[in-house]
């Protein structure tokens, strides 16, 4: 279907964005890539009289390193992120994830910030950004605040962002020496049925792990029980230690049967994918340690 007629705003500064937002309130929505919003508007699931295009707002652009964090501006597309030297060097697992999001048309137009703000559950980035403990910087006319990725998505299509706030940037801790992350997903439709993200962090010779699931529920799911069960277990021993706890945890994940698969199949996938993701994360941690040694 066609878009319902709307007024298009093209502000060039955040101040101008907030002015426009304040003026039109609930009738306005901001967008950058539009890959999610336009589909919803065309399907008439959402209706806005005012669309605010953020693409000219310079404060929201760019990808840079600040201290120990990689900062991804809200306007960065998946394609830009995947092919950015800083991302590839400092958070390689996220660059790899970004290269596999949807298809090239979505990656070329869609932004990470837009993806997170939309909070479609069948999405790749949130679980890995949670495992990496990324922070979202939200701005409004009243100032800015940081919200951990882990707390940002509340449920499907619902986030901690207030109506008058924008995601300005996503700050991802740089993957340090001895750390490795990986994301594995599976699905036979356009979007992933299940995603699994794993981190392997070596501190003082002792490994700890970070494990998160995506897509299988309505928000990223922290596999804390698995983390606790395998804390301190050396990577080489994971093939013995991990499968049972992964299976036990996965079989308890609350999920529904749908087009992506039956509940028990998705639970099984979760168990398979978290094992694969963690193996890859450990391998990445090892090679990263070696590279920086």
């Amino acid at each position: 279907m066609f878009l319902i007629p709307f007024t298009h705003h093209r502000p060039v500064s955040l101040d101008e964005v907030f002015e426009t937002l304040a003026k039109h309130g609930d009738d306005a929505a901001v967008y950058a890539g539009g890959t999610e919003l336009l589909l919803a508007l065309k399907a008439r699931v959402l209706r806005y009289e005012h669309l605010i295009d953020l693409k000219r707002v310079k404060e929201l652009s760019g990808i840079r390193i600040e201290g120990e964090e990689l900062v991804i501006g809200a306007l960065a597309t998946h394609h830009q992120i995947a092919n950015n030297d800083l991302v590839q060097a400092h958070v390689p697992a996220y660059a790899a994830l970004s290269e596999e999001i949807a298809n090239i048309r979505v990656r070329a137009a869609g932004t990470l910030a837009g993806n997170l703000a939309f909070a479609e559950p069948h999405s790749d980035p949130p679980s890995l950004l949670s495992a990496m403990d990324a922070t979202l910087i939200l701005v409004s006319s009243g100032g800015k605040r940081g919200v951990p990725m882990r707390e940002f998505i509340l449920s499907d299509f619902t986030t901690a962002r207030e109506e008058n706030e924008l995601i300005a940037e996503i700050r991802i801790p740089v993957t340090a020496a001895g750390e490795g992350f990986a994301y594995r997903k599976f699905g036979h439709l356009e979007r992933p049925a299940v995603g699994a993200s794993a981190g392997c962090v070596m501190r003082g010779g002792k490994p700890s792990y970070r494990l998160w699931f995506g897509a299988i529920g309505d928000r990223p799911l922290h596999a804390k029980e698995i983390e606790d069960a395998i804390a301190g277990v050396p990577a080489a021993s994971l093939p013995e230690a991990l499968p049972k706890v992964a299976r036990d945890f996965a079989s308890g994940i609350s999920t529904a049967s749908d087009l992506h698969g039956s509940a028990d199949y998705k639970q099984h996938l979760a168990s398979v994918l978290i094992q694969r993701a963690l193996a890859a994360a450990c391998e990445a941690a090892q090679s990263r340690g070696a590279a920086n040694a």
Binding site: N103, H188, L189, E190, R191, L259
Partner: peptide, 25 residues
Amino acid sequence: TLSEELVYQDGQPVNATMIDYHVPT
């Protein structure tokens, strides 16, 4: 062979869009 199937539930075609119905690429 691998993925295509128009699914009906309660009289409704539930995947009659190119997002939910996968044609080989």
